[in-house]
Simulated assay, not measured.
Amino acid sequence: MTEEERRAIEQDCARLVIAYHVYVDNYDHEKVLSLFAEHAVVDHAVVGMIRGKAALAAYFDAKDTSTVAQHVMTNVLIDVIDDDHARGTAYWTAYISPAAALPAPMSGPAALGSYQDTFIRTPAGWKFHTRRVIGRFAASDRGSTTLLKGGAAAVEKVREKLGG
């Protein structure tokens, strides 16, 4: 593999990491799902294992779209394994407000964490193969459970639906 090919893979995978939250924050779940391989697995810090695109769609359908959310991605580091596989790490900071009007009020981040990703080249291009969501910090008055319609009770329903 040439240096140019390696850099192209790094850029394609880093673009997936950034695109994920651009689409999530705009509640464009169809585009979010397009970033994942068909049999992708997400190990979510709140709801547990999510296996396959159908389960991912169910998770995104459960998200509360009445909130304003914005994620800031930093420290995106991609390591190319071979022509068809890569892995990466990225840090995220989530700002969430229950207000639907802009500009939404804020009092600081709702949560901070990181991702551990693996990527696979498919006929449609690079996709997430696995994604591990690691929550490192959460505001005590808001956080990941508020992202689902119905809060903590919704988390339990999503877990049941996903078999966990």
Rank of each mutant, 00 (worst) to 15 (best):
G52P: 04
E160Y: 10
K31D: 08
V133N: 12
T145P: 07
Y95G: 04
D64A: 06
A86I: 03
K31A: 13
G113D: 09
A19H: 14
T118L: 09
S97L: 04
H44F: 15
A154K: 10
L147R: 14
R87D: 09
A54T: 13
D28W: 11
A69H: 11
G164A: 14
I78Q: 10
D28K: 10
D82H: 08
T145A: 06
L162N: 05
N75S: 13
A86R: 05
R7L: 15
T122A: 03
H21E: 10
V24S: 04
P109V: 07
R136M: 13
V41C: 05
S144D: 08
V22G: 06
A45I: 01
T122V: 01
A138P: 03
D82P: 03
F36D: 08
A57G: 05
E5D: 10
K157F: 07
A86E: 11
V155D: 06
Y27E: 05
A45N: 00
D43C: 04
Y115T: 00
A152K: 00
G135W: 11
A152N: 00
P105A: 13
G52W: 07
V41I: 11
G151Q: 00
K127F: 04
I81M: 09
A54D: 15
A37V: 00
A19V: 02
E160D: 14
A154T: 05
A62V: 10
R6H: 12
A104I: 09
R51I: 05
T89G: 08
L35C: 00
T130G: 01
H71G: 03
T145L: 02
T65W: 15
R136I: 10
A14Y: 12
A111P: 02
A37H: 01
A100L: 11
E160T: 12
V42E: 13
R132I: 01
T65L: 08
T130S: 03
H29C: 04
R142H: 11
L33Q: 07
I50V: 12
Y95A: 06
E4S: 07
F128K: 12
A100G: 13
R131K: 09
W126D: 02
I50D: 03
A19D: 15
R7P: 02
K53V: 12
D12W: 11
R51C: 06
